[in-house]
Structure formats: structure tokens, C-alpha cells
Computed example of a mutant assay.
Amino acid sequence: MTQEQPIKPRVTLTDQLRVRTRFIIDPVVEMLARFKLGPDFLTVLGFATHLLFAYLIAIGEFRWAALAIAALSPLDALDGALARKLGRKQGGFGAFLDSSLDRLAEIALFGGFIYYYYTQDNALMLAVAYLAVSGSLMVSYARSRAEALGFQAKMGIASRVERYVLLVAFLALNLPHILLPILAALTYFTFFQRMWAVWQQSRDH
């Protein structure tokens, strides 16, 4: 593979959902554009919802947290769509803000688990929660760093959408003690999947 042959991006679950939910997202984006709401406002609002998720998890209201995540996390899809609708420059400050607050949102969300298990005096689950949030951050970091170096790293079994699907499912079942070990294992596995993929691409250059 030469530098002149771009790497074909992999289709992720996020990409598939964006296409399949366009009939819902597009009218909402049209309305937001008419009210002149900026995509950065939606980005900050999306982060604020994670403080609510974290609070519900911290007090042990896992089923309410599942409902809130299912209802409000789709906001994450609107800021980028609105930016494209308004003709905002790709890769500008809005993209930086979105990426940064996404990571901060995940830290806040998992902070809810850490606080909950701290109050339960459960050292083992505290450690598992730490592994889950660090693995989640490493998955995102691997992609951003790889793309900065000209590689593709969207692959893996536990990208952001998949992680949130697991969150909703297991919190709805009131099984956080099952959820967190699964997330810890899958996120680190995904991180190494991306590392392996980038290594393979680097050999082809």
C-alpha cells in the first residue's frame, strides 16, 4: 500500500446508526437550525446530561440511569449533524470541544460507579470501575492518535456506541457488577485491536 492509496474507512455501528436514523435526526436538526442553536451548545448540553447519569448511578438508581442514558445520549449525534447543516468547518474548535467533552463525560459517568462502590466499601468493584473507565479512554485515544498519524483505527468490538448499549442493557437489569467487568475486558481488547490494526497499516506504508 502506498501513500497515494488512502485506507478505506471501516463502517462502524455508529456510521450505520447515523444512516438508519437520518429520518429522525434530519428534522430535529432542521428545527434546531431555525432556532439558531449552535452545535457547541448541544455539545455542552450532552456533557451536562452525563452529570445526571453519574448522579443517578452514584445513588444506586441504576434503572433510572438506564432510562436517562437511552433517552438523552442520542443528543451526541445532533451536534455534528447540526454543524454540517450550518456549514461549520470540519476539524475546527467545535470538533475539539466535542472530542474533549466526550472524554470528560465518560470520566464523569464512570465517576458515578466509583462513588457508588466507594460508599459500598467494595474495593474490588472500585478497581474494576477504574479499569473500565481507563479502557474506555484508551479506546478513544487510540483512534484519535492513529488518525493524527494518518492511520485508520475505527475498528473494534467496543466502540462508544457499543459501550453505551451495554450500559443501558445492564443498568436496566440492575446488574452493574456484571456490566463493569465486561466493559473493562472489552475496552482493553478493543484498544489492542486498534493497536494491532495500526501496526499492520504501518508495515504497509
Rank of each mutant, 00 (worst) to 15 (best):
R22I: 01
R22P: 04
R22Y: 00
F23R: 08
I24C: 09
I24E: 07
I25D: 07
D26S: 13
P27N: 10
P27S: 10
V28C: 07
V29E: 11
V29L: 10
E30D: 15
M31F: 14
M31I: 10
L32P: 07
L32I: 12
A33F: 02
F35K: 11
F35Y: 14
K36I: 03
K36H: 13
K36P: 00
L37H: 05
L37D: 01
L37P: 02
G38A: 11
P39E: 09
P39T: 05
D40F: 01
F41W: 14
F41Q: 10
T43F: 00
T43I: 04
T43D: 02
T43S: 05
V44Y: 04
L45E: 02
L45R: 06
L45W: 04
G46T: 02
F47T: 04
A48E: 03
A48T: 05
A48D: 00
L51A: 11
L52E: 06
F53T: 00
Y55G: 11
L56M: 12
L56Q: 08
I57M: 09
I57G: 07
A58I: 03
I59Q: 09
I59T: 13
G60A: 13
G60R: 06
E61K: 15
E61S: 14
F62C: 07
R63Y: 07
R63F: 13
R63C: 05
W64F: 13
W64L: 12
W64E: 14
A65R: 12
A65S: 15
A66E: 04
A66K: 03
A68P: 09
A68W: 02
A68H: 03
A68D: 11
I69S: 04
I69C: 10
I69N: 03
I69P: 01
A70M: 07
A70W: 05
A71V: 11
A71Q: 06
L72T: 08
L72H: 10
